Amino acid sequence: MKRNFDLVIFDCDGVLMDSEKVSARVVAADMTEHGVPITPEAAMARFVGMSLKHMKPLIEAERGAPLPADWNARMIQKIALAMSHEVTEIPGARAVLESLDREGIPWRIASNSADAEMDAKFTRTGFLAITEGRTHSAPRLFAQGGQPKPAPDVFLDAARAQGVPPHRCVVIEDSAPGVAGAVAAGMTCYGFAPHGEGSTLLAAGATGIIRTLDAVPALLDARVAA
């Protein structure tokens, strides 16, 4: 069957896992502890889709002093612990992944989260068996010179692993940095905005907006304009 795309690449946080509020609360608590008081709501609005690597210099600038040298590693541990107790799946996440598997449509996950964080999320929600071997973590690429979203590196890593050229990939993203990274990779990106208009995602380069994950399979239909 002819399709618009040969690979679906999902973001993790806010697309498959309802994890962004959990992360925001951990980040807000840590910032407050380090002398930069902020609410979880404000932390989420400010840092959604951003990697710890990019967050650190912003927090240090506001704090007027460096954070501890092991801040990134400690934050990964804190976030992973919180995820292991609290994270839930986005409605329809398991169903869409299983639907793609039944149709023989390849999919992968490309995230700014560290592997330890994704493992905690997928273990908690029971996704580990189906996601194992299909995840791509931006921090995993740092040793090779890779950068987190909005750089395209983690998306290109996913495409290479599947052997699919970027222009045949479609990405599902819920943040502006993620959309920008997908577009920079030469991929088509749809913004996932279940609770808003998605204007920031469109401004970042999203081709369109979907409200529910069950809309994903239709994006691959060759009869539907990409």
Rank of each mutant, 00 (worst) to 15 (best):
R74W: 12
S137T: 13
H136T: 03
A180V: 03
R124Q: 11
Q77A: 14
P217M: 04
A161S: 14
L156S: 02
P166F: 00
H54M: 13
I90M: 12
K149Q: 07
D221F: 10
A93S: 13
A218N: 07
L7G: 02
T188L: 04
V22Y: 08
F142H: 11
F155V: 06
E41V: 14
G181Q: 02
Q147I: 04
L156W: 02
V87M: 07
M50Y: 07
M118W: 05
P106E: 00
D13E: 09
A110M: 01
L141W: 12
V216T: 08
E62T: 04
I209T: 05
A138I: 05
P40I: 14
A80C: 09
H85K: 12
A114T: 06
T88P: 07
V154N: 01
F47T: 08
P91T: 13
E60S: 09
R102C: 02
L202V: 04
K2Y: 14
P37T: 07
E33W: 10
C189Q: 01
S199G: 05
M83C: 07
I105W: 01
D101E: 15
R46W: 04
I109D: 05
A24G: 06
L58W: 08
D18R: 10
C12V: 06
H136I: 02
G191Y: 05
P152C: 11
L201V: 09
V15I: 09
N72T: 12
A93K: 10
T123G: 14
R102F: 07
F47M: 10
A203H: 10
I79E: 11
A65M: 05
S137A: 13
F142R: 08
G35Y: 13
L100H: 00
D174L: 12
D11H: 09
A151I: 03
S19L: 12
D6Y: 03
L219H: 02
P57T: 03
V216F: 05
H167P: 01
K56D: 04
A218P: 02
F122Y: 08
V36H: 06
A42M: 08
P165T: 00
A159K: 00
V87Q: 07
Q144Y: 13
A61R: 15
I38Y: 08
G163N: 00
T200L: 05
V170R: 00
A95V: 03
A65T: 10
H136Y: 12
G196P: 01
G133Q: 12
V87W: 10
R211H: 15
S111A: 04
M187K: 03
L7D: 04
M31W: 14
Q144D: 09
A203G: 03
G126L: 07
N4I: 10
G104K: 06
